[in-house]
Design a protein around this nucleic acid. Structure first.
Lengths: 248, 248
DNA sequence: ATGTCCAACTTGTCCTATAAGCTGATGACA
DNA sequence: TGTCATCAGCTTATAGGACAAGTTGGACAT
């Protein structure tokens, strides 16, 4: 559940504007389109053989991801990569595996900063209903260790549940955006994560700290969990040399 | 600089779809539109006297903010408020001052979790060029204490500069989204913040800790800064009773 | 009562036309 | 020669009409 706009199981062919936007983004990333020389509506219409309406919606999608700037009369311009909306699952899906790998590390860094504190806050204010739901999700995960995809769905829901305890829409949104972690990491590792059983044990530790209303314990347990998470991630996809001088 | 898609000073009349989207969002928030009964393209077209193209783009905007779900054949449905994209300046602009006030608190809570650590990380790896820019921004702020709007622009840039030192696109994006803080807080407080001079002093403290490459000092200075920031925010707009039982 | 099928509704895409805004080049004028 | 107003051409914004494709709920037959 909580699948957002995704369809149940079939991949569901995306709409034309989304497909074209994907193509264009890949071309921009590959350097095929130099900055500031983005194609116009007519260019897109001609090149992809789509109507101007579709070309137009394509540009609107790219604009909503802060990939381009579009204004009446002015030519469309590509914005600096540093300002793109890397929290959007759509954009992530279009990026090459190499960049996604980097983003996974950066996402993890963010989670390390936020989630231990969220767990501590949750421990101070968690309700019995939330604890029940967490318990249920742990059980479901334990039963899904053979199905990594489904497991990661529940995993995400478990972390979201803790985040929700903070009753903060901004933090909610940030963590919710991390839902692409599952899909992306699957794309990068291309294999079932090894440590699902250990993850379940770690989730249980977090849960027990919450039951005990122990902020420090919850924080520590979450920190351990994330740290283990990270090492399996690294182990699966090999070492990535950190990019240098990417900005500007 | 770094103004994104905003025009220099004039408010620049927004496009028709944006205006209509604003209207609809306000109506949804006010409860005028019951959940799951969003107007169709034709409804919008008729009610607002716009073409179907505009009605269509309106729905696409709302969809990109996760306010509604739209799919072929199915009627447009309003999504749960908890899942809206509260990181979007567009949405913030359309929300009533009361909710914006709450969001400002939640945003601040997020910053308290992230920024002190960002400052500590920056202290460990900051370059001389970044220090130069920070120095320049402090000077500019000192000269702009009479112009709160311009001051807050540079203020945001100062914090972004520190964030950038972490070389993390995810964190960048999160902090970048906080750029609506300036506009929103101005809408809420409706007055020039009192403590600009103190803010400059605090920025200088952070800067000096960075110059000294002192992570702990930078973390502490940033924490003090945010805490002071928060009290002036609270003082200006009076106490807000925290909403209860908002979810679901 | 149950399952099939269809009609009505809704979004997706296309075509054509016009309005509105920007940019750069042309050319008048000093 | 230098400066500035003007305008042609390009671009996006909006409009209207048409058809394709997908969904839903009710009519209808079993």
């Amino acid at each position: 559940m909580q699948r957002g706009q995704e369809s149940p199981d079939a991949v569901k062919v995306r709409t034309l504007p989304v497909q074209v936007a994907a193509h264009l983004t890949r071309r921009i990333v590959s350097g095929d389109i130099e900055d500031g020389r983005a194609p116009s509506e007519l260019d897109i219409s001609r090149e992809f053989g789509v109507s101007r309406v579709v070309a137009r919606e394509t540009l609107k999608i790219l604009a909503s991801l802060d990939i381009v700037d579009v204004a009446q009369g002015r030519r469309v311009v590509v914005r600096p990569r540093a300002e793109w909306d890397y929290l959007s699952p759509l954009l992530i899906e279009w990026l090459p595996a190499e960049i996604v790998g980097e983003l996974l590390q950066e996402l993890h860094q963010m989670r390390v900063l936020l989630e231990p504190e969220l767990a501590a806050m949750a421990a101070a204010s968690v309700t019995d209903e939330t604890l029940d739901r967490l318990r249920g999700e742990i059980d479901r995960m334990a039963a899904l260790e053979g199905d990594p995809n489904a497991y990661l769905e529940v995993d995400h829901e478990f972390h979201m549940e803790i985040c929700r305890a903070a009753d903060n829409r901004i933090l909610d949104r940030i963590m919710y955006s991390a839902r692409w972690l599952g899909t992306a990491s699957r794309r990068v590792t291309n294999e079932a994560p090894a440590g699902l059983r250990r993850a379940t044990a770690e989730h249980t530790e977090i849960y027990e700290a919450l039951v005990a209303r122990d902020p420090a314990g919850a924080r520590a347990a979450m920190r351990r969990h994330l740290s283990n998470n990270y090492s399996t991630l690294l182990a699966e996809k090999g070492k990535h040399t950190k990019r240098a001088a990417r900005r500007r």
